[in-house]
Design a protein around this nucleic acid. Sequence first.
DNA 1: GGTAGACCTGGACGC
DNA 2: GCGTCCAGGTCTACC
Length: 344
Amino acid sequence: MPTLTLSTPSDYDLARDACSYGYFLLAPNRWMVAEQSLVRPLLLSDGPVLICIHQPGGTGGSLRLALSRALRAGARREAIRQIVRMLRLDEDEATIRNFHRADPRFARSGRGRLFRSPTLFEDVIKTVTSCNVTWPSTVQMNLRLCQVLGEGDVDAATFPVPAKVARTRPQTLRARCRVGYRDGRIVELARRFRAPARRGGIDLALIESPSTSDDDLFAYLVELPGIGPYAAANIMQLLGRYSRLPLDTESVRHGRKILGFKGSSAQVMKRVHRHFAPFGVHAFRSYWFELWEHYERRHGPSSTWERDSTGRMFTAALLNRPLQDTDPDSDRQPHAHQSRTNRK
DNA sequence: GGTAGACCTGGACGC
DNA sequence: GCGTCCAGGTCTACC
């Protein structure tokens, strides 16, 4: 089996940093608990390739990539570019240290990087499939999108590319991928990813330019079909902009149960927003890793979560249920356990 | 600018 | 096993 080696920042820990955001549990990603490795297919210009990513040397060690086929130089560069984006290997030690200076609670665990997708398109569609549904439905939608529209073996199909989704009828998406009313919005988003910016397509130059302000980026994203304030803020963190909080019902639950805030949902959201505002450009990471830590208190280290069983753990009924009697501290002990933490 | 209701799926629950 | 209720963010209409 062909292999590649990829160096990492000296603080990089695959198990910790890949299992840091719920998308690592969504198809076509597959976290192999026993092997502590990430398996997923990537679509390259010369076809799909299945990649198994492992870090045999532990923290700071190089990543070993086992490939299902040999890659020519161009395809190899393409694969590495996608993996670097997905694992945020481009966020160096200094970037993470800045976050830890702003929020020292996570310096010891080293948390700072958040898992994302190899492409912006996949991140945007995953965000849309996480809106207005419970987590198990998000898991199913992504699995079906890959099985129905992805390339390669059905068990290891890639995430579909914009061109394929843009050609698909909304009714097909609804019937076969069970995306519900999101069908037309997903197809329209795919069409915009296909079209050049001057003809109404996604303006990648604006999105990726560091000179675009957070406010301007948010205003642009929120105008896209299927993207509201929550989704826009989430896409921003996936783009590496951490100043905005994607506040949803989970935020309200966290605000009430963990932070002890009272009042209506809108009031609790405002208080959560104010609570994390002092972390400035790091606000989302502080918010997220605090949330993640509580998920891990319930379900154990995220690197032990299985895609097929973990999805069922994140239902409103279970999350609202108090912790077992074996944990007398109950939920409201935010940092009593310095373990690992989450969901989306 | 703020609010109410529809959108769709699947889990939870009662019978 | 079946029927009903509910959770979830976006969008549109309306005030």
